[in-house]
Write a protein that binds this DNA or RNA. Sequence first.
DNA 1: ACCTGAACACCGTTCAAGT
DNA 2: ACCTGAACACCGTTCAAGT
Lengths: 243, 243
Amino acid sequence: VPARLPEDELPGSARWWLQRERRNGRRRARPNGITAERIVAEAMAIIDAAGADALTLRRLADSLGTGPASLYRHVASREEIVTLVVDHFLEPMVTRDGADGTSWRERAQWFATEFRQHLLDHPNIVPLMTAAQMLGPNAMAARQRVLRGFIKAGLDAEVAVRAYLVIVHFTVAVVQLDARPSPKTTAERQALQRLFASQDPDRYPDVVSNADLLAHHDSDAEFAFGLSALLYGIDRLRKESHR
Amino acid sequence: VPARLPEDELPGSARWWLQRERRNGRRRARPNGITAERIVAEAMAIIDAAGADALTLRRLADSLGTGPASLYRHVASREEIVTLVVDHFLEPMVTRDGADGTSWRERAQWFATEFRQHLLDHPNIVPLMTAAQMLGPNAMAARQRVLRGFIKAGLDAEVAVRAYLVIVHFTVAVVQLDARPSPKTTAERQALQRLFASQDPDRYPDVVSNADLLAHHDSDAEFAFGLSALLYGIDRLRKESHR
DNA sequence: ACCTGAACACCGTTCAAGT
DNA sequence: ACCTGAACACCGTTCAAGT
C-alpha cells in the first residue's frame, strides 16, 4: 500500500493546483518526445474511444510507443492524468462564445446548452466530472468567461456567482444521470418499461400504471424544464437584491 | 480479458433486474452461513467506513471469514455487489415517512430533504449513485411511495412522474458535486480562496475579485434555492396541465 | 455436490540496472 | 543524468483439486 498523501494534496484539489507550478519546475527534464501534453491528449482519446476503465498505463504507454514506467517522468500518477484530462476536456468551453450583447438569461441559456452538448459529445468523460473540482487553468478561464458575461449583462457579482454555480452543477448533474451505462436505445427503453410494468401491482400500483411515463422520460425535456425553472428563480433573486 | 456480456446484461440494467429471479433460482445452494444478504451488508459497511476503492473481494471475504473465491457462490461479480449495495442503501427511503395529508410541495420538500440527508450520511455511497439506475426492489418501493404521495396530494400522474424524476436527479446531483473528495474544511476553503485569488488578474479579473464568493459557496443554500425554484416551476406546469 | 486454495491474467507503481 | 526492463504488491476471477 503506497503511503497516502494528506487529503488536500490529492490531484485536483485546490492545494494540489496551487503547488503545481513549483512541482513542475522541479520535474520536467528534457524528454524524448513524450510530454505531459501528449500523454493527456492520448489519454483523453483512449477514454473517449473506450471508456475510463480502458485507460491503463500500459495501454497509454503503448499508444505513445514506450513502456509504462516512462510515463512517470512526466506525470506522478494515473490520478493526475485523469485530473489533467478533465481540464483538457474543458478547453473548448473557454473559446466558444456566442450570445454577445444579450440578456443574462439568454447568455445563461447559451452557456448551459453548449456545456451540456459538449458533455453529451464526450459521454465517457462525464463520470469523471463528479470527482473533479474544475480548478485547472481551462476551468478558470471558462469560469471567467461566464462570470464576465453575466456581470456585463447586468447581474450583481453575488448573483452572477450563484447563477454560475447552480447552472454548472445542474448541467453536469442531469447529463451525468442521463449518460449512464445503458444508453437509452429503443430496446433498453422497452426493457425498462417491462421492468416497471412487471412489478407487483398490489405493492407498487403507481409504478405499474405509470410504467410508460417512467420509462419514456425525456432527458432533453427535463433539462429544458429544470434550467428554465432555475433561471426563473435566479431572476426573482436578482429582483430582490436590486431592491 | 473476460468475455463481455451484451451491454444490457450489465448488473443494474433493466434487463439484468428482469432476469434476476430466474438466475437466482439456478444459483443459491445451501450455504455455510454466508448469504448474498450478508455479503451486501458487509460490503456497505466497508464502503461506508473506507470508501468504494477499499471494497476489495479479498477484504470483504476476510470480514466474512472466508476466501475471495467463496463469494462467487452467492454473487457473480464485484459489479453485482456494488449494484446490490446501492439498492440496500435505498432501503430506509422506503419506510421513512412524514408529511402525510399535506400539499404535494410539502411532500416534495420533505422527500428531497430526507433523501439528501440520507445521502449526506453516507458520502462514500454517493459516487456509486451515478452509475446506478435505481431499479432494484427498494428503489421500486421508494418510487411507489413518492408517486403515491404526489398523486394523493392532487398531482396528475404525468406531473407526478416528472416531479419525481427532476427532484431525484437534482438531489443526487447537488449532493454528488458537493460530496467531492476534498470535504469543505476551513483549511480547504482557504486553499480554494487562495487559488482563485492567486489567478492572473489581467486574464481572470472576475475570478480574482470574486474569490471569496466562489470559495465560500454554501451547498445547503444552493440546494434550498434550486429545490424551491424547481418546485415553483413544477407548480406552473401543474396549473397549465389543469387548465 | 459443494467449497476453496492456488493460480491466472491483469493492474499501478518502484527501482536497480542499463545507457 | 536520464530512461526503462523487470519486479513488486496488489487486483478480480477461474478452476482443478480437495472434502
